[in-house]
């Protein structure tokens, strides 16, 4: 448990750094973001909103330390400011809707690509030079080198536009009432998720696969695997309980970095498929120069990634007895 405690402290530090970066960014740009937005939305913004916007960025009178304190206090109250693009909705509300969609899409895609990568990696290392090792590894490697958004475009073009097998975008059919107890709605959500999820899986699986393969190859030459085989254990038991259990550990340690890449990929995938998640929200915010929403997106994505990392750490504790003591 000491391990998880240490990790939690680390993630808090990381979150604090992210918040500080958020505070710094508007101060590094040449103009005044609030004035720029005000100029853009003249007539639609009352002086009170302008005031609250200044507060959102921590632009209060006084030295920078005081501004920082005011910014933090504002943030701690859960106040992320008002969205311009969805004026006058508060940023937190806009983000809430998007986050749910992103977590669903990314959760499904990450789970599938991770499991698939582990499974295929085990197979590639177990049967060196055979089908998975010789063909699947390089092919998924090729997909891993594709820019996410481009693969998304191709998928959209081929499977939605040309073949008309899948919808062109959005997270669910607009004709069905948004009601999670309605199986038709759930089916529509799954149907709309297939193309964007497949895009993320195709580009992400290669990394997991190669990492697992290489780790597994190293573990397979360990003495404890030789002993397990000598003991007469079934191939299955040797492969999973002895080799793969150990070979997986580096992949889980490397989860943090991989997740960063996948989140990046999910953002642009959402853009291409007009999938109403955080990534799409972020792009809308950028096009509208909606600075509070941009910062809110960044903060929320960071928090989600840190949370996912903490889950990976917890999984690590379950899988590796050495960190438990």
């Amino acid at each position: 448990m000491r391990f998880l405690g240490r990790r939690a402290v680390f993630y808090l530090i990381a979150l604090f750094v992210a918040i500080t970066i958020n505070f710094m960014i508007p101060r590094l740009m040449s103009g005044d973001p609030v004035q720029m937005m005000f100029a853009r939305f003249q007539g639609r913004m009352d002086p009170a909103s302008v005031e609250s916007l200044y507060k959102t960025f921590g632009f209060v009178d006084g030295p920078i330390t005081e501004q920082y304190a005011s910014y933090l206090a504002n943030l701690l109250q859960g106040n992320l400011g008002t969205s311009i693009a969805w004026f006058p909705a508060p940023v937190s509300q806009v983000l809430g809707v998007g986050l749910a969609w992103t977590i669903r899409l990314l959760g499904v895609a990450t789970l599938i690509s991770f499991s698939l990568g582990m499974f295929l990696g085990i197979r590639a290392a177990w049967k060196r030079g055979r089908f998975v090792d010789a063909f699947v590894v390089p092919i998924t490697g090729l997909f891993g080198a594709f820019p996410y958004f481009w693969l998304a475009m191709i998928m959209l073009y081929v499977f939605a536009l040309k073949l008309d097998w899948f919808p062109l975008g959005h997270a669910a059919s607009l004709d069905i009432n948004q009601d999670w107890t309605n199986p038709q709605y759930v089916l529509s959500v799954i149907y709309h998720m297939i193309l964007p999820a497949t895009t993320i899986i195709l580009t992400a699986v290669g990394g997991w696969l190669l990492g697992m393969r290489n780790s597994m190859i190293n573990v397979l030459s360990a003495d404890y695997v030789a002993l397990a085989q000598a003991k007469g254990l079934s191939d299955r038991r040797v492969k999973y309980a002895y080799a793969a259990r150990n070979a997986m550990l580096p992949s889980i340690t490397g989860f943090a970095m991989s997740l960063g890449f996948i989140v990046g990929g999910a953002i642009v995938t959402e853009v291409v498929f007009s999938y109403p998640g955080i990534g799409y929200t972020l792009l809308t915010a950028i096009n509208a120069r909606d600075y509070p929403l941009m910062q809110g997106c960044f903060l929320l994505i960071t928090m989600a990634v840190l949370g996912a990392n903490f889950l990976a750490d917890a999984a690590y504790v379950v899988l590796d007895p050495r960190v438990r003591s």
Binding site: Y224, A228, L233, P321
Partner: peptide
């Protein structure tokens, strides 16, 4: 020679069960 993620009991029992 011992698997770091299994208890020693399991590793002995594995041989017997096989």
């Amino acid at each position: 020679a011992l698997n770091p993620v299994l208890t020693v009991g399991n590793q002995i029992a594995d041989a017997i069960l096989a």
